[in-house]
């Protein structure tokens, strides 16, 4: 059996644990044994994006040590997976020993949805959800990891669920991690346009693969009174989208 370590991601841990449970369910359906290493906190992005390279390396070493013993590392986020897969090796370019460990970890790290299709060759068989959805392609997953066809392929298997294409689906939503609170006015202008495009699809649901972007868009949809409800794609695929959407209370 393939031993997969789940990198929960700090946002899923704190803000929406059900995405983590959906990920475990999907990975198990795909035939993996899932472990959740205790020593995980965050992927280091806040430090990395702030320019604190030493700080980022400190956290990255912790991630490497906690996860390198598994066959695969999977995160329900293109952004966190890309940090490990793309940026960890770059961070240790001047340190041969850690560079080797970072590169080895990078090779077995994947974003959840693309891992299910590309590595496990798995597709859902009995998921059903009547309604329509639109899909936003989050930037890191899309451009750093090439995640685009995979979530659509998986969601096409969900009975009764119809895709309404989103105008500008590959345009950034304005989240950008700490960008959205450091430059709130710019971020707002970007997400306003995004929310308009989402609402204009007339879809019941907005789906995506990154909680940060989803919270940003859901938060704007909420403020603009849009009826569109937001879920992580994993929740839909795991049959866990019958509960409250992002921002809805139980």
């Amino acid at each position: 059996m393939t031993r997969v370590a789940l990198f929960v991601t700090c946002l899923v841990d704190a803000m929406r644990p059900q995405i983590g449970f959906a990920a475990i369910s999907l990975l198990e359906q795909a035939g993996c044994t899932v472990a959740v290493p205790d020593a995980q906190t965050c992927c280091s992005q806040p430090a990395l994006n702030a320019g604190d390279a030493d700080g980022a390396r400190t956290i990255a070493r912790q991630v490497i040590a906690a996860f390198e013993g598994f066959d695969f590392v999977v995160a329900p986020s293109g952004s966190c997976a890309a940090t490990i897969k793309v940026h960890f090796p770059e961070m240790f370019e001047a340190d041969a020993k850690w560079h080797a460990r970072a590169t080895a970890l990078a090779a077995k790290t994947f974003e959840l949805l693309s891992f299910l299709t590309d590595v496990c060759r798995w597709l859902p068989h009995d998921a059903r959800l009547p309604g329509s959805f639109t899909y936003h392609d989050s930037c890191s997953g899309l451009r750093e990891l090439g995640v685009m066809a995979q979530p659509r392929k998986l969601l096409a298997q969900v009975g009764g669920l119809e895709l309404r294409p989103l105008d500008g689906n590959t345009v950034c939503c304005g989240f950008g991690g700490t960008f959205c609170v450091k430059y709130p006015a710019i971020s707002n202008a970007i997400v306003e346009e995004k929310a308009r495009a989402i609402t204009a699809t007339g879809a019941d649901l907005l789906l995506g693969g990154d909680l940060g972007c989803l919270m940003n868009m859901a938060g704007k949809l909420h403020r603009t009174g849009s009826p569109v409800r937001t879920f992580h794609a994993a929740e839909v695929l795991a049959g866990m989208a019958d509960g409250p959407a992002i921002g809805e209370s139980v």
Binding site: V8, D13, A14, R16, G20, F21, C180, P184, G219, R223
Partner: peptide, 21 residues
């Protein structure tokens, strides 16, 4: 404020994943 000035912040849906797990 940087977040909530322009958008709603979805409240955490329950205890943390790690607690629940």
């Amino acid at each position: 404020g940087g977040w909530t000035r322009h958008r709603g912040l979805p409240a955490p849906s329950g205890g943390t994943f790690m607690q629940q797990y």
